[in-house]
Design a protein around this nucleic acid. Structure first.
Lengths: 389, 389
DNA sequence: ATAAATTCTTGACGAAGTTAATTAAATCTC
DNA sequence: GAGATTTAATTAACTTCGTCAAGAATTTAT
C-alpha cells in the first residue's frame, strides 16, 4: 500500500512557515528568490519546500524558456496549488449569515447565505453548521478542515470567545468551541474588520507592505492596523476605532458619548439624518439622497462632502500617528464612492503631515462577499500557528 | 597572566538578550523566575547568565533569609551591576547640548551642557565631542563605549543619518559616523521623542507593558508609540505626529498647512498667542500668563483649559486607534500641569471609546535632563543589536 | 567544446535550547 | 534531629534548525 500524502500542510518550523507564506502571497517564485527575500539560505528553502511539494501544497513549475536574460541554469519557480485545501469563511451579521468556500489563495469557489431569524446562540450555531454543510457539498468537503468566522464587536481570537457583540446581543459566548463541536472543523474567530485586514494583508493591497491600514465605512466606521506583520489588537481589546476619533470639536453627539466623532458625521445613519434635515424631507431614503446628489443637488452633495471630509480627517489622524505604507478605504452598504472619494482625498492631502502623506491611499467598494472572504483568510492564516500567536 | 574579563556584554544569542533585558528591566530575579517570565527553560537561563556574571554585568545575590514562605532551596536572584558600563547620552537642541552619563540602569551619574553658538555641522560635532570628553572624566571613561544622540526631526536610526532637522537646518547629515570619528565611541542616533519613549519603555512607566505611548507637550507636540516591544517608525519615517492630528474642524491654521491640529491649539506658542489675544496684552509673557491663570484669571484659565481639551482629544484619537496599555504625557518647557491636567483627563474620559479608556494615563513634568537620559537609554538599547533591527 | 553563470541539492557541521537526571539547600514532619 | 519534601540550579545528552561549502544540473557565451 502506497504511503498516503500527509493530510495537512507540514508547517513544522519557522523556515517552513516563511517559505510557504512567501510562495503563497508572492506568487510563483524560484527558491533562490525566496531565499533572497526572506534572508534564509537557499539550502534551507530547498529543505523546507520539499515536504510541501510532497504534501501537494506546492508544485514546481517548469522553467518556461528563458527566465533571465543572462546565462545560468533556469529557475524552477515554486507555486501554490490552490486546490490542495479549501477553507470556509462565514460572516455573521445581525440579519444573516454569509458564507464562502475559498481555495488556498482565498479565491471564492462557492458561496451561500442564510437569513437569521433569531439571535439565540444555539440557533445561530445550528444555522451556521447548516450553512457550512451546504457549502461543503461534493469534493470540497474532503479537503476542508478550517472555518473562519467573522463577527463585529469585541472578539478574542486566541480563546475563540465573543466577548461582546452589540448586534447579536451576546456577551462572553465561546463560539469557536461550540462551532467546532457542531461542524467538526477547526474554528478561528475574529473581529470582522480585522478579518478583512488579514485578507488584504495576505491576498490584497497589503501584500509586501510593512504596515498598512484598512478602513471600512458604512453603518459603522472602523479600521484595523497591521504593523510589522501583526494586527494591532489593543491592550484592552480595543484598537482601530477610527469611527470614534474626534475630528470636529463641538460637533454632533455620537452614540459613544463623545462629540464630533467620525462616525457621528459619516456613518450611513448620520448622513441620512443630515440629508433629511438639509432637504426638509423626513422620509428621504438613502437611495434617493444618493441619486439626487449624483444629479447635482448641491445641498445634498454638501452632506456627502461633509462626510468625506470627516473621513479624510480621521484618515489623517491615523496616518499621522502610524505612518502606514498603504491605506485601503472600503465601504459596506451603499457604495456612494463617487460622492465621497474626492473630498476624502482633498482633506487627507491637506491634513496629512509631511511624508506621511506619501502613503498609498486606495478607495474602493467592498463587494458583498468580501466580509466572508475575510473570515476565510483568517482560517487560512490559522494554518500558521506559530505566527498567529 | 590571568585571563581578563571580556570587555563588553556577551550578548551572543536571543536567549542571552532575553535574560539580560529581563534582569535589567525587572530588577533582581531568580533564574527560575526569569525562565517562567520568558518561556525559556531554566537550563537555558543558567547557561545564558553565566557569561554575564563572568563579564561583570550580572551578579548573584545571596539569598536573604527566606524568600518564599514554603520549603525548598532558596533562590539566588540575579541582579544587574549597574556600574559595569557607562553610557553617554546627548540631546541636541537649537540652542545647546545637554549631556549625561548614566549607568546600565539609566541612572544619571554626571551631567553637563554647552551652549551652541552655531548650527554648522562641524562646529556641533566638535562641541559635542568636547562635551563628551568633559563628561567622561576619571574612571567613567574606561567603561563607556556607547554614545546615544537625540535630535528632533526626521532621523534614520539604522543608518545614523539626520534626514531633516528643522531646528538645526540640517538635511542628510551622517551624524553618527562623524561622531564616531570624533569620539571613538559607538554612536546611535535617534529622534528625541522616540529616545524618550525608549527610556520609558525600558526603565520607566513602560516596563512590562505590551504597548504604550509617550506624548510630549511643549514647543511642539509629539509622541512615540511602542507596539509589541518595537517603536512604530512609520513607512516613510513619520509616525507619532499627534501634534498634527486634526481635532477641531475649521480651527486655527497650523504651520503644517492644516487646520485645527493639536499643535495649533496647545503648543507653547499657540497658547501664548491665544493668551495675548484674550488678555488684550500683546506683550504678555508665558510666565505671567501662567501666574495669572493660577491666580484665578478666568479668561486665561480658559486658554489653558482649551489647550488641555485639544490634547485630550488628540489622546483620545491615539488611544482609540491604538489601544495602548499605558500613556505617559510629559512636557518640556513651562511645566503648567496644574492648568492642563484636569481638562486633559476630563476630555479624554469623554472621548475615549469603551475599554480603551482603561489605559493608564500618567501626566507628569519632564525634568530637564530627561531628554539626554533618553539618548543614553537608546545607547543602552544598542547593546542588543539583534533586537533593535 | 570549453568556460562561465546561475539554480538547486546534499551532507557535514554548529549553534541554541530542551529534556531529564543530578546536585544543592532550604523547610516540614514525626 | 533524621529523613522526607520542596524548590533552585546545574549538568550532560540530545534534538532541531539552519548555515556552509562542495558539487551537480542546466543553461548562455565564446
Amino acid at each position: 500500500m502506497p504511503r498516503s500524502a500527509p493530510a495537512r500542510a507540514p508547517i513544522t518550523s519557522p523556515a517552513a512557515a516563511t517559505v510557504f507564506t512567501t510562495v503563497l502571497t508572492e506568487g510563483p517564485v524560484s527558491r533562490v528568490d525566496v531565499a533572497r527575500r526572506t534572508g534564509l539560505s537557499s539550502a534551507a528553502v530547498t529543505k523546507a519546500a520539499r515536504p510541501f511539494i510532497e504534501a501537494g501544497y506546492l508544485e514546481e513549475l517548469a522553467s518556461e524558456g528563458r527566465t533571465a536574460p543572462g546565462a545560468g541554469r533556469p529557475a524552477n519557480p515554486l507555486a501554490i496549488r490552490p486546490d490542495r485545501e479549501y477553507f470556509v469563511g462565514v460572516k455573521i451579521t445581525g440579519d444573516d449569515l454569509i458564507g464562502v468556500v475559498t481555495d488556498l489563495r482565498a479565491d471564492v469557489r462557492a458561496s451561500a447565505h442564510h437569513a437569521l431569524t433569531s439571535h439565540d446562540v444555539e440557533h445561530v450555531v445550528r444555522a451556521l453548521a447548516d450553512l457550512v454543510g451546504e457549502l461543503l457539498s461534493g469534493d470540497l468537503r474532503e479537503r476542508a478542515y478550517c472555518l473562519g468566522v467573522a463577527v463585529s464587536g469585541d472578539v478574542d481570537r486566541a480563546s475563540g470567545v465573543v466577548r461582546y457583540s452589540p448586534f447579536l446581543g451576546w456577551r462572553d459566548v465561546p463560539l469557536a468551541s461550540l462551532l467546532e463541536d457542531a461542524t467538526g472543523l477547526t474554528v478561528t474567530l475574529e473581529n470582522d474588520v480585522k478579518a478583512l485586514a488579514v485578507a488584504e494583508q495576505w491576498f490584497g493591497e497589503g501584500v509586501g507592505a510593512s504596515s498598512f491600514a484598512l478602513v471600512t465605512v458604512g453603518t459603522g466606521i472602523g479600521s484595523a492596523l497591521v504593523v510589522g506583520g501583526d494586527l494591532v489588537r489593543g491592550a484592552h481589546g480595543v484598537a482601530g476605532e477610527i469611527g470614534h476619533v474626534p475630528v470636529a470639536d463641538g460637533g454632533p453627539p455620537c452614540h459613544c458619548g463623545g462629540r464630533g466623532c467620525v462616525e457621528a458625521i459619516a456613518s450611513t445613519e448620520a448622513i441620512l439624518t443630515h440629508a433629511r434635515a438639509v432637504s426638509g424631507e423626513p422620509a428621504l431614503t438613502m437611495e434617493d439622497a444618493v441619486a439626487r446628489a449624483r444629479g447635482g443637488d448641491e445641498p445634498l452633495r454638501g452632506v456627502f462632502a461633509g462626510a468625506g471630509h470627516a473621513i479624510g480627517l480621521g484618515l489623517a489622524a491615523l496616518v499621522n500617528l502610524f505612518g502606514p505604507e498603504r491605506v485601503v478605504v472600503s465601504g459596506e452598504g451603499v457604495a456612494a464612492y463617487d460622492l465621497f472619494e474626492e473630498q476624502i482625498r482633498r482633506t487627507f492631502a491637506v491634513q496629512a503631515f509631511g511624508s506621511a502623506a506619501r502613503c498609498g491611499l486606495v478607495i474602493r467598494p467592498l463587494p458583498f462577499e468580501e466580509w466572508a472572504r475575510g473570515a476565510a483568510a483568517v482560517a487560512i492564516q490559522s494554518l500558521f500557528v506559530a505566527e498567529s500567536v
